[in-house]
Design a binder for these strands. Structure first.
Length: 487
RNA sequence: GCUCCCAUCGACUAGUGGUUAGGUCAUCACUCUUUCACAGUGAAGACACGGGUUCGAGUCCCGUUGGGAGCGCCA
């Protein structure tokens, strides 16, 4: 029987959640759920200097927002607690001690100055790699004990034997091998008593019975060190799967300098969590059919590691925008209403009072032309306020000597119109165009500009119907006052 | 510099020895239309290069070039 699949997402609490990390979390989640396995959230807080207050809460909140649920981890517990590495120091020390006893690791008392000097010297001699010179490996047992008792600052290093070829299999990339000569005697326990990532993640992955290590490709070069550790402990290797990187437009690793990388940024820009998830799922993975829009359930259903491919993927915001718009178009009116009300609270219209009916009508006619919920009042600002300005180029384009007359006529008819309905407006348009012998568009275009301040948007009659007769008339007046003498 | 990884339209990708190299976003055109969108139809657009292997190579092998990542008492 196949053992239960267990994977982990192991971020360090150093600030916001990077979109690349979110994808790693997502792939782990999808893989776990697809295989009825478990997802462990483990906090890798072994760097005291980089720790950021509130980062753990932020990670958890972000996962919640996108709907990634972990099975074991902080605030949730599990059979392999604790899930904060800072609370597992004893464990790492025991394991480090074990390696020392087996001569797979050793104490090192070298000072930072000496280490720097070695490095500089090696660089000066143009050595291909700079490595620790293993000086402390030749210390006698007595010397080591004396130093330890005297409290000399020290670290514990892995004793890498040169001349070996280290091989391991990556699920996505196949066999990878590297010569051990290139690998430094990695520090396992730092002088502050905390483990390095390398030791901590190997020990925890083993103890937490992690079966598949799914992580970013940036870890590939340090995997041989981890393999060495598994061997030193005599443990069976887990399955490694190194995900292709998420890239900037210029193909460098996705970074802050070239746009937003924090999940929060996308949230505040108005991207829907489902749309974001849908989008990043498709980066580096393909579902083997031609569908583009997937619910999280469908993603779980279709996700396999075989569908992950090798090369990095550029994070293309254009496609994300399309997906977001797709999701919005699929929403029911009332769902959008709730979202709109939420966003309105933080907008400049927060003090205004709009009826559900009014907002619902806006939603209905604006829905096909929005990418974000806030487009409802940003692109459709004319439903919420008078146009502040009219683009002069547009005015110039549509204005002709008859414009004043046409608009005035339309306005006057509006004033005496008995019932303000679409049919009547339509009639009026037809009548005026017939009487003045002009095309309907010659009324519509200036009307649209006067009422909305733009030449884009839903049908002008729908707009007029929504904002009402009074406002329409006053907007026409305002427009005429401004331009009738300018041409 | 060294090590490792990677290489199909502008972008995301399908393709596992025989395809008119397919789809999606973006772009362009047309249709619909009072404008803008939506929708529909269509167009343009790619196998980095060079050698092999093979009857046959985007697909396998080698090399070149290009790109990326990593080389910390950071993760």
């Amino acid at each position: 029987m196949q053992k239960d699949i267990r994977v982990r997402y192991a971020p360090s609490p150093t600030g916001f959640v990077h979109i690349g990390n979110l994808r790693t979390a997502l792939f782990n989640y999808l893989f776990a759920k697809h295989n009825n396995g478990k997802l462990v959230l483990r906090i890798e807080d072994t760097d005291q200097l980089r720790k950021v207050e509130g980062a753990v809460e932020n990670i958890i909140r972000t996962l919640q927002w996108v709907g990634i649920e972990y099975d074991e981890g902080p605030y949730k517990g599990g059979d392999y607690a604790p899930y904060f590495q800072s609370e597992r120091l004893e464990i790492y020390h025991e394991h480090a001690k074990y390696l020392i006893d087996k001569k797979k690791a050793y104490y090192c008392f070298c000072t930072e100055e000496r280490l720097n000097a070695i490095k500089q010297e090696q660089q000066k001699q143009k050595q291909p790699v700079t490595k620790y010179d293993k000086k402390c490996l030749s210390l006698t047992e007595d010397e080591v004990q004396k130093n330890l008792q005297a409290g000399v600052p020290h670290v514990i290093r892995l004793n890498v034997i040169p001349g070996m070829t280290i091989k391991f299999n990556d699920f996505i990339r196949g066999e990878v091998q590297i010569l051990s000569d290139l690998i430094d005697d990695q520090v396992l326990i730092k002088s502050d008593g905390y483990p390095t990532y390398h030791l901590a993640n190997v020990v925890d992955d083993y103890l937490m019975k992690i079966t598949h290590i799914i992580r970013g490709e940036e870890w590939l070069p340090s995997t041989p060190k981890h393999v060495l550790l598994y061997e030193a402990f005599g443990w069976e290797l887990p399955i490694f799967a190194h995900l292709p990187l998420l890239l900037n437009k210029d193909r460098s690793k996705l970074s802050k300098r070239q746009g937003d990388v924090a999940v929060e940024d996308y949230k505040s820009k108005g991207y829907l969590p489902d749309a974001l998830i849908n989008f990043i799922a498709l980066l580096g993975w393909n579902p083997k059919d031609e569908q583009e829009i997937f619910s999280i359930t469908e993603l779980i259903d279709k996700f396999t590691l075989e569908g992950v491919h090798k090369s990095g993927a550029i994070f293309d915001i254009e496609k994300l925008n399309w997906i977001n718009a797709e999701y919005l178009r699929k929403k029911q009116g009332f769902e959008l209403l709730i979202m709109l009300r939420e966003e309105l609270k933080n907008s400049k219209y927060s003090n205004e009072d709009y009826s559900d009916e009014y907002l619902m009508n806006i939603i209905t006619i604006m829905k096909p032309r929005i990418t974000f919920v806030r487009d409802l009042y940003e692109k459709g600002y004319y439903f919420f306020e008078e146009p502040q300005d009219y683009d002069f180029n547009l005015v110039e384009k549509i204005w002709n000597p008859t414009t004043t007359g046409i608009l005035t006529r339309f306005k006057d008819e509006l004033k005496i119109m008995q019932s303000f309905t679409k049919e009547n407006l339509e009639e009026e348009l037809k009548r005026i165009s017939a009487e003045l012998n002009i095309k309907k568009s010659q009324i519509i275009q200036p009307l649209r500009l006067a009422v909305t301040g733009t030449t884009e948007g839903p049908g002008i009659l729908e707009i007029i119907l929504l904002i009402g007769k009074e406002k329409t008339i006053s907007r026409i007046n305002r427009f005429l006052e401004k331009y009738q003498n300018n041409f």
